[in-house]
Amino acid sequence: MNTLLLYLGPVILLLIVLGFVTYAILAERKVIGWIQGRIGPNQVGPWGLLQTVADIVKLLIKEDTIPKNADKTLFKLSPIIAFVPAFVVLAVMPFSSQIQFTDIGVGLLYYMAISSITTIGILIGGWASNNKYALLGGMRSAAQMISYEIPLVMSVVGIVLTVGSLNLNDIVEAQQKTWFIFPQIIGFVVFIISSVSELNRTPFDLPEAESELVAGYHVEYSGFRFAFFMLAEYVYIFAMSSLTTVLFLGGWNAPFGFTFLPGIVWFIIKFSVVVFFLYWVRATMPRIRVDQLMQFAWKVLLPVALANIILTTLLKEVPFLTHYY
């Protein structure tokens, strides 16, 4: 039984994630529609519920074209390289005190290390297409993702300092009284800005800026190869929202001792709030300029994240704050 669960667990999670992605896309279009005073998709199925399913079927039966100048092997490989890490990082995510696939000691480092592999997939995709827009998009994307990865990694060091462990379970258990969003508010702000950028979402969606780069790194991709780039992006929304919940919002811990709901329900509530926040940001913010984008990461976020590390170590020395740091 246990062995069966070991092999079936990841498959079940994959189905859940695919279900999430299907309806996250619809929810995003609905929410952004409402915020902008539109209705959003409402034609396919009741209340537009089958819109994404129709889109997926359309992508599945689209012709698969590969430009003759492209590097064919890398062109085919790159959507897979981009997608695989998005799902593999979920292996260490503690969804509740019971539901976690594997509990490794370096969980946080594992997430950060694996998730940065996607950059390589995007860069390969942009280069292998042998298309000027795709190459520009891929290069910009790589530059942006590596620039924002630094503040993202630095912003969580404050938490590691407080907990004294990289294990995601330990991090959640340390938040039974106080969520880290309060003592680590500076880290949280840096983390959330960097994560929006890592997800390539508005206001940091320059790699895919439709109006300047056509579509960026995936301009030559069609059908399901294109779908896997999009899928990777939405699986990362799942993963990043889960990580935000785990690191800053107390994971499965119930707030104010409201333990009548099981931990997984609290996790889903907090997770949904983070996902909604991402949609909200996308609907509200305009895209920023490329020079502002790079300078913001190195001149603002990185110094702030470093200052947060030093501040946390200093606050650990204050006697009456030892409860929080």
Partner: peptide, 17 residues
């Protein structure tokens, strides 16, 4: 066993595309 599970995740993720 932890890394076996990560290996299974990897396999599932490669098999889907």
């Amino acid at each position: 066993k932890s890394f076996l599970i990560i290996g299974i995740f990897f396999l599932v993720a490669v098999l889907l595309p």
